[in-house]
Design a binder for these strands. Sequence first.
DNA 1: ATGACGATTTACT
DNA 2: GTAAATCGTCATA
Length: 222
Amino acid sequence: MPPTTTKKSPRPTDPLPTSFYTRPADAVAPDLLGRFIIRTLDDGTKLIAQIIETEAYLGSPDRASHAHGGRRTPRNQPLYQPGGCAYVYFIYGMYECFNIVTGTADNGDAVLIRAAAPIRGEDLMLANRRRHSRSRGNPRHTTPDFLMGGPGKLCQALLIDRSHNLHPIHRPPLQITAGIPAAPAEIRTGPRIGIDYAGDARHWPLRFALAGHPAMSRPILR
DNA sequence: ATGACGATTTACT
DNA sequence: GTAAATCGTCATA
């Protein structure tokens, strides 16, 4: 008979507790590696992907964050929700980026989901990517390693868009579940991508990825 | 009303 | 390595 304090390890498709998301973004971001994104379509089809790369954005003190200096605009409202909802925004006139809001209410923290690997529904993900793209026959569209290797590509493959903004991430049609959490030894860190305007914050080691994973959006150091 | 910019991706030199 | 694509958002006026 095991002691009553023994925790049952969750199944990969079980939700994560609210306490998982109410931590600061730099704690949640590495802990999201290995977790599952489950995207349930209108017809009931489930697309499943495993998170392999994330970035933390730290709100007010972080010049790379949309919430830098406590800035509040119509677009960044979701960042001031309590941890556990989606923040999806449109960027470069072309792409969407999927974030998980973290921390307590009003702190502005979030984690950008930068890359994932297909677990289930890969064929449909490929079709979704092709639909958005002009060129055909490019390996970037036809191999699992490039399918979701970047935040914009990930949203295209999983049909994530601004309609999911503010969605609570513990239920369909867009969920994060326990997945297969990464061992600490398998996690690499480095500076974030695409934020050269952010002053000193551009050097902060807030990018996290599974070591050597082929679907990473770019190589990572350390 | 106007203009600059962006947590990207792609093709091309 | 560089540049183009493409438009919502925000600051300024």
